[in-house]
């Protein structure tokens, strides 16, 4: 456990040790261990098929682990599923809304599943619709809502029981940029209120925006762990130079460029060859560009940018997060 202000008193709300899930002889989650502190915003960042959703389902006790231990709010979700889920807010990857019901009825019946009293729901449902900016859609059937509205409704639904932990499985996948920003704003408010967020994503910008701390997962394994800033510092250089030479010359330039980055740089420097471009990791991008131009390598396009979590993933796995 890091980052929680170094506090030893904060007991983890989620504690996973060697958590493993296999389907037949395929290992979807491969002995992962992590802790989530109360009030923390914790992320699982990884590409499709990394095992993120499977992990989320095991936290809710709706998927049975193959090995390892898991404790959610001090309880084993497999043995105490109802107790654990009573305290969780779940926003699954697929909304699982009843499209034929009105927005508010979706919240109402869901609240009844928890056994929440009608009087409580009568006040809570409008409050959550307001929070999700869906007050004017209260009486609309879910079919009539946009993707972003459905997602916000699902988040509102996940808050019906005042959860101690909100699980968000790919909260903004499939949404347009504007819808994503509205959603991030809502999640940020929850975070400010001290709600513990556990979210999965394959968007590095989302992870950077929302997560205090995250694990990078690939093929069911944790390949790195830390704060977004810490991970970037630890696994990449300060800047990256992206150059394109066109598909024909891309590969043949590799040797020449490799010599450039190896030149007196620290070990985090290096290059990644992608099908359409080459990335050069360096602490001084401008100097690198000058050197490229001095050697007259003539890339078609060139740019210098700050490194991001995307680069962390690339450096660790040699692959891009989104394929």
């Amino acid at each position: 456990m890091s980052e929680a202000g170094g506090s030893v008193t904060a007991v983890s709300v989620i504690e996973a040790r060697e958590l493993t899930k296999t389907y037949g002889d395929f290992t979807a989650v491969d002995a992962i261990s992590f802790d989530v502190a109360p009030g923390e915003s914790f992320g699982l960042l990884g590409p499709n098929g990394a095992g993120k959703s499977t992990t989320m389902r095991m936290i809710g006790g709706t998927s049975l682990r193959t090995a390892g231990t898991l404790s959610v709010l001090g309880l084993d979700p497999e043995r105490h599923g109802p107790e654990v889920r009573a305290s969780l807010g779940v926003v699954p990857q697929a909304d699982a809304l009843d499209e034929e019901l009105r927005a508010r009825d979706n919240l109402y019946v869901y609240g009844r599943y928890f056994g929440l009293p009608r009087a409580y729901l009568k006040a809570k449902v409008p409050e959550l619709l307001e929070f999700a900016q869906l007050t004017d859609k209260s009486d609309a059937k879910v079919t009539a809502l946009s993707g972003g509205m459905k997602r916000r409704l699902t988040i509102a639904r996940g808050l019906i029981n005042e959860p101690r932990i909100l699980l968000l499985d790919e909260p903004t996948t499939g949404l347009d940029p504007q819808a994503r920003h509205i959603l991030w704003d809502r999640l940020f408010r929850l975070k400010e209120q001290g709600v513990t967020l556990v979210l999965t994503t394959h968007f590095m910008d989302e992870a950077e925006q929302l997560c205090d701390r995250l694990v990078v997962v690939d093929h069911g394994r944790i390949v790195a762990e830390g704060s977004p800033r810490g991970l970037i510092q630890e696994h990449t250089t300060r800047e990256v130079v992206e150059v394109r030479f066109g598909s024909a010359r891309n590969a043949e330039m590799q040797a020449e460029l490799a010599a450039l980055v190896a030149d007196g740089q620290r070990s985090r420097a290096g290059l990644e060859v992608l099908p359409d471009r080459i990335l050069l990791y360096t602490d001084d991008g401008e100097a690198m560009l000058e050197e490229i131009n001095r050697r007259a390598l003539n890339p078609l396009t060139q740019l210098v940018r700050r490194t991001s979590l995307e680069d962390v993933f690339l450096r660790l796995t040699g692959r891009s997060l989104i394929d």
Binding site: T62, G81, P82, L88, E100, Y113, G115
Partner: peptide, 13 residues
């Protein structure tokens, strides 16, 4: 309708 899936995110068994 996914009502069972939704229900299984709650304490219901």
């Amino acid at each position: 309708q996914k009502n069972y899936l939704a229900g299984y995110s709650t304490p219901l068994e």
